[in-house]
């Protein structure tokens, strides 16, 4: 599950060593915006050593590297990829070619480090209008792509607007990216919610992205994690209904029947699929490896 992926500033030992204790599904050790230009070298060494130490609980571990438009990203990859992380979060992806360039460099380092080529996933941040426009092609450009993620502040700037409380400026982008992600078979993860003290606003935004189909959200403050998990966790009633649906489908299959009815509603394959997904989110069923 990728309900919550918590950003940890790459030059902050306190957060880097203890961030996993806040209970997010994933971590993003950040070498990009959270690190001052003058500290890129020290952060890279610190993040590398924290990765080597490897104490992250059950979190999916990713690193946000510096953009491919800088002279820093190759050094970032050279330092962190040999540590066998789950993935990189790549900023300002605008075209499939950028992903292929990353793919090539990742393959080279993985092979040299004795890591299975293809192990490291790519989480693509689409932070420009051009990147958003190319979302599907980007998502399909490499089997490494695990998710596409709309940018927040950078995208608002590129769209010549500002972040609003209602998220109007990102609404169409979010709708577009969920379609692109599902069509390409990758996850859709949402951008951060910047107003860390606005719990009600965060809850409204998470309810909205969940209703669109998003798999989760990037997180900039640990206090945001329980709110997001709460929205994504099915209610007891939803879990009970899902269990009934799966049992009914199993019984029907054993009796050679096609569709059956549960509580007056027809149960067919998509309904069963949704019920299974509900139980995965509730932690009742184990998460299956995505068929990619």
């Amino acid at each position: 599950m990728r309900r919550t992926m918590l950003y940890l500033p790459g030059n902050n030992p306190n957060m880097l060593t203890r961030g996993y204790l806040f209970g997010s599904d994933g971590l993003i050790l950040d070498l990009e915006d959270a690190v001052a230009v003058s500290e890129k070298d020290t952060a890279r060494i610190l993040v590398r050593d924290i990765l080597r130490r490897g104490e992250f609980g059950s979190c999916e571990v990713t690193v946000r590297i510096n953009g491919v438009d800088t002279d820093l990203w190759r050094d970032d990859l050279a330092a962190i990829i040999p540590c066998k992380i789950d993935g990189i979060r790549a900023p300002k992806i605008e075209s499939p070619q950028t992903v292929r360039d990353l793919d090539e460099e990742l393959s080279r380092i993985e092979a040299a480090s004795g890591i299975e080529v293809g192990h490291t996933k790519i989480f693509c941040l689409l932070e420009t209008a051009f990147g958003v426009w190319n979302a599907y092609d980007i998502a399909k450009s490499s089997p490494r792509v695990a998710a596409i993620i709309p940018g927040g502040e950078d995208l608002a700037a590129d769209l010549r607007t500002n972040r609003s409380a209602e998220g109007t400026e990102l609404e169409w982008v979010r709708r577009m990216l969920i379609i692109a992600a599902r069509a390409a078979g990758v996850d859709a993860l949402d951008t951060v919610f910047p107003r860390v003290a606005d719990d009600d606003g965060l809850r409204r935004e998470v309810e909205f992205i969940k209703s669109l189909g998003y798999d989760g959200k990037s997180v900039i403050h640990p206090n945001q994690i329980p709110i997001i998990h709460d929205v994504y966790t099915p209610t007891e009633k939803e879990v009970e209904t899902a269990k009934k649906i799966i049992q009914a489908a199993k019984d029907a299959a054993e009796r050679g029947l096609g569709a059956v009815s549960v509580d007056g509603r027809m149960v067919d394959v998509p309904v069963v699929k949704r019920a299974e997904f509900t139980l995965v989110r509730a932690g009742v069923l184990p998460e299956q490896e995505k068929g990619r």
């Binding site: 060593t17 070298d41 060494i45 610190l46 050593d49 924290i50």
Partner: peptide
């Protein structure tokens, strides 16, 4: 600073 942080800072300073 824990061991891993100390090591990283020493390496960075030396480089």
């Amino acid at each position: 600073a824990i061991d891993v942080v100390l090591g990283a800072r020493v390496e960075a300073a030396y480089r």
